[in-house]
Design a protein around this nucleic acid. Structure first.
Length: 271
DNA sequence: AGTGCGGCCTGTCCGC
DNA sequence: TGCGGACAGGCCGCAC
């Protein structure tokens, strides 16, 4: 599933094919994604130029003069660049063709993703407005997290997965970063010291940057096959490693369920 | 306001 | 071998 690093890699992959190109055609084969694709999307976007291909949280923006196309990949979505010679397959729901003939094609078997329109400025859109800082921005600091966590009773894991606190930390990276920071995922967010938040913030930045590097390598030829799931697996320290030994201490990795999500951690290393 | 959970959806895996 | 059911997950929107 696309986590932030994969979304950023996708963005970088499609950008050169779309930037400064005019949108010529939008084909919607399946309107029913997480939210319906607006019926008037083609009307709004056709003959408009893509001024920027950017990202906020796990949303990809195609910025036009009159507004923005927002794309979210949900958990099974992927983007590729092709031409109309490549026939759409079963789960290829949307094509956006630009003036050089290239097509941006969205595939999403589970339909958890979305394609939406936002009037200017996109930052005022309902889904965007309340989002927390980008984890890789300088504004995301230990002080910020520590302050936000004051008196919070929820677990540190659900705290860092809360997009109103910080964006882009999904279920996999929540486990991974808490392991790197040596923090027990069950610990209450409000009960964590500033110095431990410093470790956590460093771990989040490190892990996401490493994964973006990995994604960059794996998805280099993005217009071809595109990203297979599980390509991060080699680098994962705890996620999906239930019963295997901890890379730090040799203890067995434990799995349990938190907020209906699988958490993996080392009982010895994480306190 | 903070917290937790239901729901959306289909491919994959497991057990029978 | 084929089939059914459990499971996975991002994250909004609602209920408490």
């Amino acid at each position: 599933m696309p986590e932030l690093p994969e979304v950023e890699t996708s963005r970088r992959g499609i950008e050169p094919h779309l930037l400064n190109k005019k949108i010529k055609c939008i084909t919607i084969r399946q309107h029913k994604l997480r939210w319906p694709i607006p019926k008037n999307l083609p009307q709004l976007a056709i003959n408009k130029t893509v001024r920027a291909v950017s990202r906020r949280a796990k949303y990809i923006y195609l910025e036009l003069d009159n507004g923005t196309i927002i794309i979210h990949l949900g958990m099974s979505g992927s983007l590729r660049i092709c031409t109309d010679k490549t026939l759409p397959e079963k789960h290829d729901h949307v094509d956006i063709q630009v003036s050089n003939g290239k097509i941006l094609r969205l595939r999403d078997p589970r339909k958890f993703g979305c394609v939406l329109w936002a009037d200017n400025p996109v930052s005022e859109h309902k889904l965007i407005k309340l989002l927390g800082p980008e984890p890789l921005d300088d504004s995301f600091t230990a002080n910020y997290l520590h302050d936000k966590a004051k008196k919070r009773q929820c677990s540190i894991k659900s705290f860092i997965m809360n997009s109103h606190i910080v964006v882009g930390v999904g279920n996999i990276y929540a486990s991974e970063t808490l392991f790197r920071a040596g923090i027990n995922p069950k610990r209450k967010a409000g009960n964590i010291s500033l110095s431990r938040f410093e470790k956590l913030v460093s771990a989040i930045k490190l892990t996401l940057n490493l994964a973006i590097k990995e994604g960059g390598t794996t998805l280099r030829d993005f217009t071809g096959i595109s990203g297979q799931p599980g390509y991060f697996a080699q680098k994962l320290l705890v996620y999906g490693r239930k019963g295997e030994t901890c890379t730090q201490c040799g203890e067995h990795i434990k799995q349990f369920t938190q907020q209906a999500r699988s958490t993996f951690y080392c009982t010895a290393c994480q306190r």
